[in-house]
């Protein structure tokens, strides 16, 4: 059986998805990146390889997320796609006719407006990351509740308190004030969900026409409190797909399938890359006052990729030496 691999290396989580030819998910993993994208990716590949039934062959791979180039180099991806396109592709494959995708991840949030199955508009958070997953994570640990209980606790709220959601720092101090005044935890958490939704709709969703069917995905969609707050604010039903937390990877897998059908071959290096020794190094280039921080990816002791230089002096030198060899 032919299968396609999708990998989403994000700031908070690294997700892997294996789909069959009908884009059904065979296997999916959601792993915490923990600041070590390469190791986490390899761990995910190892896990998947161990579970993989014998009769399956991987015929294509796609990567997405902020670490997509890194993951693409390591796995030999057939397609490296930005996360907006992959999320849109995945949402419309799960909920045909999707008109709005609400996505909140670890460090970014985005809204994608689809009309007639194609993206017609999108926005991502600009200079502020307030209201994304990592802030909720941080608040949960400050309040000493497991992140999994955040949503269910918020659902128990009777009168959500009003929290200033404009900025994460203000939201935190507002929460502390409310908590010191004696408001109960469910009301504070539900208030936080509402504040974050308000902030999301005012910033990312500003001026966008949000129509049903709407799909809510990304790690934060695990939080039922957020779903409820979205539905309350928008007045429409918000769908959460079964694999809400790996939608980017699913989109990458679907695109990898399309790509390899077009080209007929795959560059996927196989699961063995999980056991190779990769590490990242870097240096500050002193060629000009820009002092670019150049990142180097090593396989064993050989540099296989470089980026981060504005002028292209270092990244191009790799591309050329590869052509020669």
């Amino acid at each position: 059986m032919k299968a396609y691999l999708g990998i989403d290396v994000g700031s908070v989580s690294t997700n892997l998805v294996l789909i069959d030819e009908q884009a059904h998910i065979i296997e999916s993993y959601y792993l915490r990146t923990n600041g070590q994208p390469i190791l986490t990716l390899q761990k995910g590949l190892q896990k998947m390889a161990a579970k993989l039934p014998m009769k399956i062959t991987v015929n294509g791979a796609g990567t997405t997320g902020s670490g997509r180039y890194l993951a693409g180099i390591i796995t030999g991806a057939d397609i490296i796609k930005n996360e907006i396109t992959t999320h849109a592709v995945a949402a419309s494959s799960i909920v045909p006719g999707t008109k709005t995708v609400l996505e909140i991840g670890g460090q970014d949030s985005k809204i994608i407006i689809l009309r007639n199955g194609v993206v017609s508009d999108f926005a991502m958070n600009t200079v502020c990351a307030a209201g994304t997953g990592s802030f909720m994570d941080q608040q949960a640990s400050r309040l000493n509740i497991p992140i999994e209980d955040f949503g269910p606790t918020a659902l128990r709220a009777k009168t959500p308190v009003r929290i200033a959601g404009r900025c994460a720092v203000f939201a935190e101090s507002d929460m502390i004030h409310k908590q010191q005044l004696g408001y109960n935890l469910p009301d504070i958490l539900a208030g936080l969900c509402e504040a974050l939704v308000r902030n999301y709709l005012n910033n990312v969703g500003k001026g966008k026409e949000i129509l049903a069917p709407a799909v809510f995905q990304g790690g934060v969609a695990a939080n039922v409190g957020m779903k409820k707050a979205f539905e309350k604010a928008l007045g429409i039903e918000v769908n959460i797909p079964e694999h809400y937390n790996v939608m980017g990877a699913l989109g990458a897998a679907i695109l990898a399938r399309e790509e390899t059908i077009k080209t007929g071959i795959s560059n996927f290096k196989g699961f063995s890359v999980a056991n190779a020794k990769y590490h990242a190094g870097g240096f500050e280039c002193t060629g000009c006052p820009n002092m670019c921080e150049v990142v180097e990816i090593y396989k064993s002791k050989k540099v296989i990729a470089r980026w981060g230089d504005r002028c292209g002096k270092w990244s191009n030198s790799i591309a050329q030496s590869e052509k020669i060899s």
Partner: peptide, 18 residues
């Protein structure tokens, strides 16, 4: 530069799609 690159790529996908 990742933020700008991601947005530009997604924007161009949108242009080509249309």
């Amino acid at each position: 530069e990742a933020g700008v690159i991601t947005r530009l790529e997604a924007f161009l996908d949108m242009v080509y799609w249309k």
